[in-house]
């Protein structure tokens, strides 16, 4: 064991990790958070719209529109991420100016994530007790007030835990976007492990990714519990 930590491989790996990992972690966090944020801006309203737009929801959408949205979301969700990256490349080029690199990886991430987030939000909103919606209606709430004062506030704990799931999933996807030159821990793992056979570096970066996911997940779980007034002690 002692031999291992003085071996050439190990020392070299440590050296690479020291010089390259801080930037990689930064890039991973930056891409993950920005992508999640943009995906949320699209997915949150869309998810709420899906939930309230149900056939017997508070703002029933016209059937064709509802079907269109559902099919679109299902379609986007069923395309494998690596293929999605390729398919949206023209769009990426249009928005970012190039289809390659860290900033460019945000576009496919957002497109993969927002339908997923919309579904998670839809299910969070559906968890709100329908009797409470009826109470709000009987109190004279408009559909818009029901959304802003009942549906969203009442589903906050569930939204937080679902957004955490989205965040960790997107974190995993950023590792894949390393394949198209998106920066971060994923790129590091692929560059050293796959192309240069430096498995130690790959293992260390993978461990770091796992730790990041764990960190996000425990913060998310904690926040969800703390925010939930149903769990307050008597």
């Amino acid at each position: 064991m002692a031999d291992f930590f003085t071996s050439k491989d190990w020392l070299e790996a440590v050296d690479i990790v020291k010089t390259e990992v801080p930037l990689a972690i930064w890039e991973t966090l930056y891409v993950t958070l920005i992508s999640t944020l943009i995906a949320l801006m699209i997915g949150l309203p869309l998810g709420v719209l899906l939930a309230v737009g149900d056939k017997d929801g508070i703002i029933p959408l016209p059937a064709p529109l509802r079907h269109f949205l559902n099919i679109l979301i299902n379609l986007l969700r069923s395309v494998p991420f690596l293929i999605l990256i390729v398919v949206v490349a023209p769009l990426t080029r249009l928005i970012i100016g190039k289809a390659f690199g860290t900033a460019a990886s945000i576009v496919p991430l957002v497109i993969a994530a927002f339908p997923f987030i919309a579904r998670l939000v839809e299910s969070s909103v559906h968890e709100v007790n329908p009797n409470i919606i009826e109470m709000a209606q009987s109190t004279g709430a408009s559909p818009f007030q029901i959304i802003t004062k009942v549906l969203i506030p009442e589903s906050v704990p569930s939204l937080i835990s679902n957004i955490t799931i989205a965040l960790t999933t997107i974190l995993g996807y950023t590792a894949m976007s390393g394949a198209i030159g998106g920066g971060g821990l994923g790129k590091l793992a692929i560059n050293y492990g796959y192309y240069r056979y430096k498995y130690l570096v790959m293992i260390i970066t993978v461990i770091l990714l796992i730790l990041l996911v764990q960190l996000f997940q425990s913060i998310g779980t904690k926040l969800s519990v703390v925010s939930d007034k149903r769990l307050k002690k008597k």
């Binding site: 007790n129 009797n131 409470i132 109470m135 209606q137 109190t139 004279g140 506030p153 704990p157 007034k229």
Partner: peptide, 17 residues
């Protein structure tokens, strides 16, 4: 509806408020 209000079997309070 503000003049004809309602109470329910399940109370239907907003649990996060």
């Amino acid at each position: 509806r503000r003049e004809v209000t309602m109470i329910f079997q399940g109370f239907n309070l907003l649990m996060q408020r």
